[in-house]
Every structure is written in structure tokens, then in C-alpha cells.
């Protein structure tokens, strides 16, 4: 418990984490509500042709879950990957593992306290984005004179849980990369390239190459989109930001694969932390 409090203090006092949270909220609301609503209200020939109505309906509170959860497997994951890499990698950069590991708490206790603190820190990442999305959707409803209907509570709870779970996997991926690379820079670079480029390439080629198609079914984004798709969310089109064109798997399979990834990331990181010699700052 003491180590957990220490790790929470570290996360809370780090300005970078608040910047990431703010940026994530801004991006989520911008891409999920502001830009689509701007497109709806602009002269894009939507009005009176059905497409615009569909677009507007997606922005209303009853479709909150479907609309906002799309952003989790894409830039939401990338944001918390950076947070995870910063939380762990900075310890290597600053050489702070030396004073921390020479206190009373053992290495694994410190590591799991950090993981738990990150898991707790992800809660506001999920709750605040849903809250902001709700406020945006209510504002749009009010402005368009639409009735305000809330999404079913069970759907909302499942979406919150799925969102937190997806972010947890990505944050653990960030920690994993930071432990392996003993720093932040390479971990963040590799993580972003993986999330935004490599997965997309594999998914794209998966349509022509069967092996890549199989491989894509164990990737984070594929399973992330599959998980939210199982909540009744329509996946974004290939062309838009965060567009996804890869394979889909069942919700259960996606949850199991993601849980497996989470366990592997944490277990390998813990094993490395436990075994590896600790030198000074890198």
C-alpha cells in the first residue's frame, strides 16, 4: 500500500500526465463530436439526403457508447502507451531505480505498485472522456432540438469497462517497451510506430496474404476494435481517422487475446525487472 501511494504521488505530480489526459480528451471530443458536427452543419450536401440525419443521430446521447468508444483503440491507446512508457522509462533515464530499489520494498512490490497506480490513473482517462462526450452530445441534441435520451446503463457500464481494459493493455505495452529498452524515447517511438503504422500495414496486407491475416487477429488494434464492435459499435470506415479495415474476431476472443497480451506484458516486464542488474542513469 505504501509503494502504491508513492507511485500515485509520482503520477499525480507529473505535469506530462495531465497534458496527456487533456490532449486525449481534446482529441476524443474533436474527432468524435466537433468535427462530425461541423461536417453536418457545413455545406456538405448532407441535409435532406439521409446521410446527414444518420450523422446527426450518431452524435446524440443515446449513441454515446457507439460514438466515443471508437477512439479508444486508436489514439486513446497511443496516449496511454506514452503514459506507461514515461512512468517506467523515466526511472531508467533518471536513474531513480537505484534509490527506489534500495528502500525496504522489493523490486516486484515496487513494479506492481507502479502497474496498479497506472491502472488507477486510467480511470479518469475513461470517465472524463465519457463525461465530456456526454456533455457534447447533450449540447448537440439541445442545439438541434432533438430529445435527450440516455444510453442503457448496462451498455454504458460495459463500454466504460471495455474502454478501461483497452487502455490498460496499451499502458502495459508502454511499460513493457520501456523496460525492454531501459528508457522512454525508444519505447514511445516504437510503440507509436507499432500502433499507428505496423498494425495498419499488417491489416492491409492481410487481405492479400493469408498468414498476415492470421497474424492480424492477435494484434492489439484488431482485438481492440473487435472488442468494442461486440458492444454494438459500428467500426470507423477505412478512410477516416483511426479507420480500421482489418479482420474482426468475436468479442470473447478479443477479450481473451487482450487479456493474454496484458498478462504477457506485465509478466515479462516483472521478470526482467526482477532479474536485471540496476545501473545508474541511462
Amino acid at each position: 500500500m505504501d509503494s502504491l501511494m508513492a507511485e500515485l504521488l509520482l503520477l499525480r505530480k507529473r505535469v506530462g500526465n495531465w497534458v496527456l489526459l487533456g490532449f486525449w480528451l481534446f482529441m476524443a471530443v474533436l474527432f468524435s463530436y466537433l468535427l462530425p458536427y461541423y461536417a453536418y452543419t457545413s455545406d456538405l450536401n448532407f441535409h435532406g439526403r439521409g446521410v446527414g440525419v444518420v450523422l446527426l443521430i450518431a452524435l446524440l446521447p443515446q449513441n454515446l457508447v457507439a460514438n466515443i468508444t471508437n477512439s479508444f483503440p486508436f489514439f486513446g491507446g497511443t496516449m496511454v502507451l506514452i503514459m506507461g512508457a514515461l512512468a517506467m522509462g523515466s526511472e531508467y533515464n533518471w536513474g531513480t531505480l537505484t534509490p527506489v530499489f534500495t528502500q525496504r520494498a522489493g523490486r516486484l512490490k515496487v513494479f506492481f505498485a507502479k502497474i496498479l497506480a497506472l491502472a488507477i490513473a486510467l480511470v479518469p482517462f475513461v470517465l472524463l472522456v465519457f463525461l465530456l462526450a456526454f456533455l457534447a452530445s447533450v449540447s448537440i441534441s439541445w442545439r438541434e432540438g432533438q430529445p435527450i435520451e440516455l444510453p442503457p446503463l448496462w451498455d454504458l457500464l460495459r463500454a466504460l469497462a471495455a474502454g478501461w481494459f483497452l487502455l490498460a493493455v496499451w499502458a502495459a505495452f508502454g511499460v513493457f517497451l520501456a523496460v525492454l529498452s531501459r528508457g522512454t524515447a525508444l519505447a514511445i517511438g516504437l510503440g507509436i510506430i507499432y500502433g499507428l503504422v505496423i498494425e495498419g500495414i499488417i491489416s492491409s496486407f492481410g487481405r492479400q496474404i493469408d498468414l498476415l491475416k492470421q497474424i492480424s487477429t492477435v494484434l492489439l488494434r484488431t482485438n481492440g476494435y473487435s472488442l468494442i464492435s461486440s458492444l454494438g459499435v459500428t467500426l470507423p470506415s477505412e478512410a477516416g481517422p483511426g479507420g480500421f479495415s482489418g479482420e474482426s474476431v468475436s468479442g470473447t476472443q478479443a477479450a481473451l487475446v487482450l487479456a493474454g497480451c496484458l498478462l504477457v506484458f506485465i509478466a515479462v516486464s516483472a521478470a526482467v525487472i526482477r532479474r536485471r542488474d540496476v545501473s545508474g542513469a541511462s
Partner: peptide
Amino acid sequence: YLSGRDNLRVLARHAS
């Protein structure tokens, strides 16, 4: 990014 005092707080927590 922490003050000297906060750094000691972190270590004090880890050391119980």
C-alpha cells in the same frame, strides 16, 4: 519534477 520534500516522501513511502 518533484520538490526535494516530495522526493523524500516517495522514498519514505517505499521504505515504510
